[in-house]
Design a protein around this nucleic acid. Sequence first.
DNA 1: CTCAATTTTCAACATGTTGTTTAGTAACAT
DNA 2: ATGTTACTAAACAACATGTTGAAAATTGAG
Lengths: 195, 195
Amino acid sequence: MSIYIEKNRRTKQLIQKSFMLILEKKSFESITIGDITKAAKINRGTFYLHFKDKYDLLEQIEQQLFSDLGTHIDDLQSQYSSTSTFKKEQEDLAVTLFQFIEIHSPMLRIFLSDRGRAGFHIRFRDAFSKKVRLNLEKNETFNERLKFPIEYFLSFITSAFLGLIEQWVQNGLDKTPQEMAMLYIDIISFIQNKE
Amino acid sequence: MSIYIEKNRRTKQLIQKSFMLILEKKSFESITIGDITKAAKINRGTFYLHFKDKYDLLEQIEQQLFSDLGTHIDDLQSQYSSTSTFKKEQEDLAVTLFQFIEIHSPMLRIFLSDRGRAGFHIRFRDAFSKKVRLNLEKNETFNERLKFPIEYFLSFITSAFLGLIEQWVQNGLDKTPQEMAMLYIDIISFIQNKE
DNA sequence: CTCAATTTTCAACATGTTGTTTAGTAACAT
DNA sequence: ATGTTACTAAACAACATGTTGAAAATTGAG
């Protein structure tokens, strides 16, 4: 019985492992069940014993990841004392998050870089980022003051914008463009002014 | 001859229009060429006279959108004088961007909300956002000081993080988690301290 | 160890989608 | 009229999907 579960899990993990390997070379959408089972050297039908479909497989892998992230943040928050400052907590959170990313980078590298399709947000960022870069690089003093690579600055700014955009659209455009721009400025100074 | 080109364009636009309509109800991946041509009341073969495949169709629509965004930003930048301040330019850019979003919101609502799949970044943000929210809401003074809806703050912060994460991973983890956390703080104060 | 029950694997099937191709039609230009 | 262009209709092979019934492997009970 124990070996059954072992075998069961082993096959399931084999499928997940093979899937992740293929995902390094092909986009998610272009991967077929056949690709996965061929790589795992099992019958295609066996796949359906473990997963509903390709999307279920991805979902299960992602959920393990998210659950792991939740644990990391919970651990951090349990250490907070009443004397912790906002800024310190922000920094700790940042460290925790980036540490988590580092640990899971093999998997995240694949998920975050899948340009197969669906990567609309990536292409949107690229298009927007290119424009902002041109604007910034004309500014002489800008590059001198910069303590960090410009691509990080661009990723930060364009993603933050995209986040606000997504929320705005999701809220059914509950604000005017001017209000949104003000919101953007306010959030920046809010973050900065917290001591 | 002129009417021929009319016919051609009309069919192509009809396909694009039908596609966008279907996209409001079904996810991109689940839409078949047959769905589109059936809705457009044209032969399936005709689709292939205008587009290579489903992805080509999406790409062409997106490219029109991005090209339009580029024009908007170009227009703005041509108005900059040597006396413009960084902060003013930032604000103008924000206004221009959000105005653009407003104009194209019907299309963007669909693109940005397609959870069909590929929406990994969305699910990642949700998972991370949930944790940050819990942490923030424990802070009494936080909610009082807030001039804007918390969901916007969360979208901003989590997206900005995600942007840095994507860049970091893309750069092959060229920094330590601590450096990344510092980078995050530095960018915030850099933006804020620009006058 | 043996064997029946259970679990896992597999080959084959029906179904549906894709992209291509062929032949034919209709509208227009020269 | 003749040729060109844009589309239609139907058929095609190639391939992917999810299911099923039979076979094989693994297990615990006797």
